[in-house]
Structure formats: structure tokens, C-alpha cells
Design a protein around this nucleic acid. Structure first.
Length: 541
RNA sequence: GAGCCGGUAGCUCAGUCGGUAGAGCAUUCGACUUUUAAUCGAAUGGUCGAGGGUUCGAGUCCCUCCCGGCUCACCA
């Protein structure tokens, strides 16, 4: 490695967002060079959203990943940029979703733009407005920096007018791109322009009788009535069929970067061709892989396989979900419960590494290649990360029967007295999640065996003895001695079988924590209740 | 039919532009403990799908093939 080589070209941090940022920078440079100083606007990154459904884990992934490209672009060039979250809310309602109320009402609005369909929840002025609001609050909950854009507002506000007229000028060429990809039926009627029916409001998929580029109108016939119409394409009186819509939007807004799933590979290609026909340059972008479930099957909302954002966030902090999205976007990854703890710990490991790197050089390439640098938005706080791994907390929650964070904190403080929820907020967060994980997955799998008569007598004794300590500040060793004494009094041989009994009968597991310590943390009264419940369960069974 | 991704330890995967094959879990052993468990330490374990090529050197780059999976081809 010679000096001349290291000084000639700056080495990019070895992380995929920087490679993407490099592509974006090249794209912006080309655009600026072509248009001159007239086009010195910020780099524009776009993410698309279809408001016929609710935001989901893919939505999170796309916005998170695009945000990281933007962060890398800023670090790389120092130039301004914008992130537009574009909602295609003028798209027609195709079918009534399963998971909404008032489905009969919605049935009547099939074919109408989503922004003109009433809100089945009755809280917003339209179904689209409702889902747009859900999108925004979803994105806000993660702290994403973005600008929301409504397709309907852009169309009706005239922001697409010039581009729409341009589409009419090259109408036949656009048809020539899309038509060969369609089946014979659709091919016969295809037009990139979908006029809104002046009376019914329906998004019409009909053949154009004539296209008048100069007037900015299209002529078409209502197949139901035979009535002929001439509709302006401007001002929200028509919209584009989706591939053409994408292309027109790229062209009209000058989108510089947009990523998409591999299911859209063909669409990206076709929309790119249309964008060039219009006279634009399609954005740079990344094709990311789709998520698979545990068995390698595609995740689909209708099947309900895979994992939702809500589920993930119940069992681990949101940073871990970011970590999952950061890893290898171009590789299909399985998304199911088992990956959560590992991913959370991967993140924690990166945070510790990043803190060291940041202290050494806040602008270093190694730091900027670290996932935590992206996930924490370029600044890793001193109290980020956790001295205890998530995996360890899960084990601890399991063996300690941790029903509440306090129980877990008792064990943690014994492990390191200097940590607390105040000094280690991430650890506090992990504890909460570990409790949820335990409650949902570990506890239900426990099997409690019935005590033998001998064990039963000993347990009754233990409960009686413990009652003597209720309300007192009993320490762990006193309680441990008490438990030990009762075991000896009842002549358990070997004595460890007495402890085995406690774990299997009371905690539903083969192993457990030192029992005196457990009682001290779990509570004397609560332990008595635990014993009584076990004895009662036995009588009923 | 078109395109994409993968095949590395028993399992799940990592492998940082070619330089002595790694982690976690699992298994086994040990340390600690008035029984345990957590925890800590160690060991075991791989023809890197197959074959060829480039190279002093290939899990890594190129070609061919095998196996598995996914996406698109109706709509967005």
C-alpha cells in the first residue's frame, strides 16, 4: 500500500450506504452538469408508499435504508438533500381490505381514488388521509427525517401538469414500451393516462380515442354508456397508470435516488425507459431482497407469516430492528422470532465498538462503516449500549422467573452495583423487552410437576416458615439457611433433590437461581403465594 | 420463459476488494457456589456445493455445471 495511492483517492467507508451515496453523488453531478446552475437543488431521495394498506415492516426497511444512504451522502459530500415519502393516494381502491370496519360501505367505492374513498374508521376525511396519517405517525415514531407528499395533492395542485403534458407528446412511445409486456386484453386498452370519470369519479382504464398534446387533453369513451368524454390530463382530472406514474414522477420532481424490492425489477427498468423518453434520467437506486419467513417462504400480510414491526418492537428495542435492516439489503433474510436476540446483541456489540472508534476519531472511516453510526444517526451517546447482553438477560429472566423488571434489576445490581435504569437507559429498555419475551415464550412452555407427599409436607413447612418473615427485610443468606434447614429436617438425600423439587414444582424448570436470593428478590409474600398456588394446583389435578 | 439470491462446523450465519477458515447456539470438560443456575475458561467439530481457469497464493476473482429458494410474466 503506497502513500501515493492512499492520498490520490479517498477511500470510502466500507459500508453499503456509502456505495449508494457514491452512486447518488455521481447522479447528482451528472444532472447538475447537464442543466448547469439552474439545477443546483438538493439531492432528492424518494420512498414510495401505497396507502391501500397500513405501513409495515417493509415500509420501515425502505425508509430506514434510504435514510442511511442520505446520511452517507451528507458525510461524503456535505451537500444538502431531501427525503420525500411519497404516498400514491390517488390510486384506485382495488379491493376492500380484510382488516377494516365498514367493509360494505367501502365496497361501493371500488375503482375510486383512495383519496376520495370515505374513511372506514371515520376519523379522517378519506381512507387515504387515514392511512397517510398512520404512515406519518409510524415514521415519526422512529424519528425519521422526511417530507410527506400526497400524490393527490401534487396532481390537483398542478405540480405534475407540465410533465403530464409532456407525457401526451410522447404518448405512443410510452405505449410502445408498456404494451409488449401486457396480456392481449389489457394491451388492447392500455394507455398510460387514466382519466377520472367526470361523473362517477372512477379511475378509468380505457383506450384513448385521441390524444391532444397541445390542448393537454385526452378523448375516450365510457364503455358502460358509450358516452364520449374529453378530459384534461392536468389539475387532477387524470392520473398515470403506475409504471408511467413512477416515471413521470421521477421526471417531474427530478428524483435522484429511490430503492425498491426485487419484485419491482421489471418495473424499474420499464419506468426508467419511460423516464428517458420524457427527457429525464431515472434515479440511482438499489434493488433490495425480500424478507422470508422461518421456512424460507415469502412474507405476505395475508398469510400472516413472518414478523410485524409491532411484534419485533415488543421483544427488542427499535435499534435492533434497524440493525436487521442494515445487514445485507441485497440478500434475502429470514425474519422470525429467533433472529431477534441475536440481532439485538449484534447491535450492542457494534455500539461498543463504535463508541471506541468515535472517541478516537469522530470522522473516521471505521466509525462510518459501523452499523451503529447509521442506526444512531451519526452520534453514539456515551450511555448508548448495554453492559449486559440481551441474550444474558433472556437467560436470567428465565431462570429467575422474572415477572417484573424489578426482579431482573435485583440480579443485575448484584452483578454490577453501579448500573441502574438512569445510568443505562438501553439496559432498562432491554430489561423491559426481556420480561416480555419471557412472559410470551418462556413461561408458557414451562411444565410444573406435582410434588410427592414428602415434598408436599416440606413445602407446607417452608411456606409456614416464610410467613414468619413477611413484612421483614429478610436478607438472602438468612432465607437460604431457612430453605436449607427445612430440606435437612425433611431428610432429602441428596439435599440437592430438595432444590430440584423447588425448581420443578414452583418454577416449572429443571434449574433455577439460588433459592434464598430468589426469595429475597421475588418477595417473601409472593413466594408463599407461589407455594400455595403449587399446592392448590396439585389438589385440583 | 425472464431475472435475482443463496449453498462455509450438528443448527443459524459472519467472513472486512486474494494472504494461516470464524462467531453464537448445541455437545463435552473444567472453575465458581452450603444445592443449582447465571457467569467465566477450554475442547470438539468444516474436501468452504462440484469441476475448471487466473495467481506465488482463491471461501473470496472469471467460466461451466449441480442443488435449493424467491420474484416477475393479472394489478400496483
Amino acid at each position: 500500500m503506497s502513500d501515493s495511492r492512499t492520498t490520490s483517492a479517498p477511500v470510502l467507508p466500507r459500508a453499503w450506504p456509502f456505495e449508494e451515496a457514491q452512486k447518488l453523488a455521481t447522479h447528482v453531478d451528472a444532472r447538475t452538469a447537464k442543466a448547469g446552475a439552474d439545477d443546483a437543488r438538493p439531492a432528492l431521495l424518494e420512498t414510495g408508499y401505497g396507502p391501500s394498506g397500513l405501513p409495515h415492516i417493509g415500509t420501515f426497511g425502505e425508509v430506514a435504508r434510504t435514510s442511511w444512504v442520505r446520511q452517507a451522502y451528507t458525510a461524503l459530500t456535505g451537500r444538502p438533500s431531501r427525503l420525500l415519502a411519497f404516498s400514491d393516494d390517488m390510486d384506485a381502491l382495488r379491493k376492500v381490505p380484510d382488516n377494516v370496519p365498514n367493509r360494505d360501505m367501502l365496497e361501493k367505492f371500488i375503482g375510486q381514488p383512495l383519496s376520495r374513498v370515505p374513511d372506514p374508521f371515520g376519523t379522517h376525511e378519506s381512507f387515504a388521509a387515514h392511512n397517510n396519517a398512520r404512515l406519518c405517525s409510524f415514521l415519526d415514531s422512529f424519528g425519521f427525517d422526511y417530507e410527506f407528499a400526497s400524490s393527490t395533492q401534487y396532481y390537483t395542485g398542478g405540480r405534475f401538469d407540465a410533465a403530464l403534458k409532456r407525457v401526451l407528446e410522447v404518448h405512443e412511445e410510452v405505449v410502445g414500451v408498456i404494451a409488449p409486456t401486457l396480456g392481449p386484453d389489457r394491451r388492447a386498452t392500455y394507455s398510460p393516462v387514466l382519466p377520472l370519470h367526470p361523473r362517477t369519479g372512477e379511475v378509468m382504464q380505457v383506450k384513448m380515442d385521441a390524444v391532444n398534446a397541445q390542448a393537454g387533453t385526452v378523448q375516450w369513451t365510457d364503455p358502460a354508456t358509450g358516452e364520449k368524454f374529453e378530459t384534461p390530463v392536468t389539475g387532477g382530472h387524470a392520473k398515470m397508470q403506475w409504471k408511467a406514474d413512477w416515471a413521470m414522477r421521477w421526471y417531474a420532481l427530478g428524483v435522484d435516488y429511490e430503492m425498491s424490492g426485487k419484485d419491482l425489477i421489471d418495473s424499474v427498468r420499464l419506468s426508467g425507459r419511460i423516464c428517458r423518453i420524457l427527457g429525464g434520467e431515472p434515479p440511482a437506486g438499489l434493488t433490495y431482497e425480500l424478507f422470508l419467513d422461518e421456512n424460507g417462504q415469502k412474507i405476505s400480510k395475508s398469510k400472516g407469516n413472518g414478523l410485524s414491526v409491532e411484534e419485533w418492537l415488543r421483544y427488542a428495542p427499535q435499534e435492533s430492528l434497524g440493525q436487521f435492516m442494515f445487514n445485507q439489503p441485497q440478500r434475502a433474510k429470514r425474519l422470525y422470532f429467533d433472529v431477534i436476540p441475536k440481532t439485538a446483541d449484534d447491535y450492542l456489540t457494534h455500539v461498543e465498538k463504535a463508541k471506541t472508534l468515535q472517541a478516537a476519531d469522530p470522522k473516521g472511516n471505521d466509525l462510518r462503516a459501523n452499523p451503529a453510526w447509521f442506526i444512531n444517526k451519526g452520534d453514539i451517546a456515551n450511555n448508548a449500549g448495554s453492559p449486559v447482553s440481551f441474550g444474558m438477560l433472556l437467560n436470567l429472566a428465565s431462570v429467575a422467573n422474572a415477572e417484573t423488571p424489578e426482579v431482573l434489576w435485583g440480579f443485575i445490581r448484584r452483578y454490577d452495583a453501579s448500573v441502574s435504569p438512569e445510568t443505562h437507559p438501553m439496559l432498562a429498555c432491554l430489561v423491559e423487552h426481556a420480561i416480555a419475551y419471557y412472559a410470551d415464550f418462556v413461561r408458557p412452555a414451562k411444565t410444573f410437576r406435582a410434588p410427592s407427599d414428602k415434598e408436599r409436607a416440606a413445602l407446607v413447612d417452608l411456606a409456614d416458615a416464610l410467613r414468619g418473615y413477611e413484612g421483614e427485610a429478610a436478607d438472602a443468606s438468612t432465607l437460604q439457611n431457612l430453605v436449607f434447614e427445612i430440606g435437612k429436617r425433611h431428610e432429602f438425600e441428596p439435599l440437592r433433590s430438595w432444590f430440584g423439587c423447588l425448581y420443578e414444582v414452583l418454577l416449572g424448570q429443571k434449574e433455577g437461581p439460588r433459592f434464598g436470593g430468589f426469595v429475597a428478590l421475588y418477595g417473601v409474600r409472593e413466594t408463599v403465594a407461589l407455594i400455595e398456588a403449587a399446592l392448590l394446583r396439585e389438589q385440583q389435578g
